Computed example of a mutant assay.
Amino acid sequence: MITMIAAAGENNELGKDNGLLWHLPDDFKRFKELTTTHYIIMGRKTFESFPKPLPNRTHLVITRNKNYKKPGAVVVHSMEDALEISKNDSQPFIIGGGEIYKMGLPFADKIELTRVHGAFKDADTFFPEFSKDHWQLISKTEHAKDEKHKYSFTYETWIQK
């Protein structure tokens, strides 16, 4: 099962200048719980936004740059290559950014989407639109705004129909 995992605003905003638009500690915790021990597939800019590779995960980095090499990254040049390398993982995760999500959507079986309740006008990166005709919402968990979370949000799990 190939899963896309993302946090997106009400208008599918993901980030700006290769950073997030919000700080949601409980969402980070959930991301870690879901992705630990799995392959995580991302673009070069997403990989470079991490201070260091995330522990206990295999980082597959998609880039057009044939000479790109970084410690902690397995470099590939297409989504197909990334999926081939991760084929023995029961659930590789596509973790972004925007272009990588667009590339991954046709291959995905599941979307773990944290819908952040807010509109973020400064965003320059977006999660792709996906058709409710092809995807079914199977789970929804609300998380209220609190002292650690400036925005309320909802964990949504979608599967291909």
Rank of each mutant, 00 (worst) to 15 (best):
F28A: 12
K16G: 08
K45Q: 13
L113V: 07
T125M: 10
E112V: 06
I41S: 02
E142L: 12
T154E: 08
K148Y: 11
H38W: 10
M1R: 10
I62S: 01
T35N: 07
E13T: 08
D133L: 10
Y155L: 12
T63Y: 13
F130R: 14
H23W: 13
R64D: 01
F47P: 03
K148N: 14
H134P: 01
T154K: 08
L20E: 05
F126C: 08
F130K: 13
N11R: 15
M79D: 02
E10N: 15
K66I: 09
M103D: 11
E112M: 10
E80P: 05
F120H: 04
T3N: 04
G96I: 04
L21D: 04
R44G: 03
Q160L: 15
W158S: 05
T58D: 11
T154L: 11
V76Y: 04
A6G: 14
K70L: 02
H23M: 09
F153Y: 15
I40Q: 01
Q91P: 03
T46P: 00
D89T: 09
T125E: 13
N12W: 09
D109G: 03
N12P: 13
H117V: 01
P53R: 14
I94V: 13
L83Q: 03
H143C: 11
R115W: 08
L54A: 09
K32V: 12
I111C: 00
D81Q: 15
E142W: 13
W135T: 07
I159P: 02
K66L: 11
G97T: 09
V74F: 08
E129A: 14
E84I: 05
H117Y: 11
G104V: 03
T58R: 09
R57D: 06
L83G: 07
K87H: 13
S78D: 11
R115Y: 06
S90M: 08
G43E: 06
I138C: 04
G19M: 12
F153R: 01
D27Q: 09
F153P: 07
D122L: 14
D89K: 11
H38I: 07
K29L: 09
K110E: 05
V116D: 00
H134L: 13
M4A: 05
N11D: 15
I138Q: 01
K140H: 11
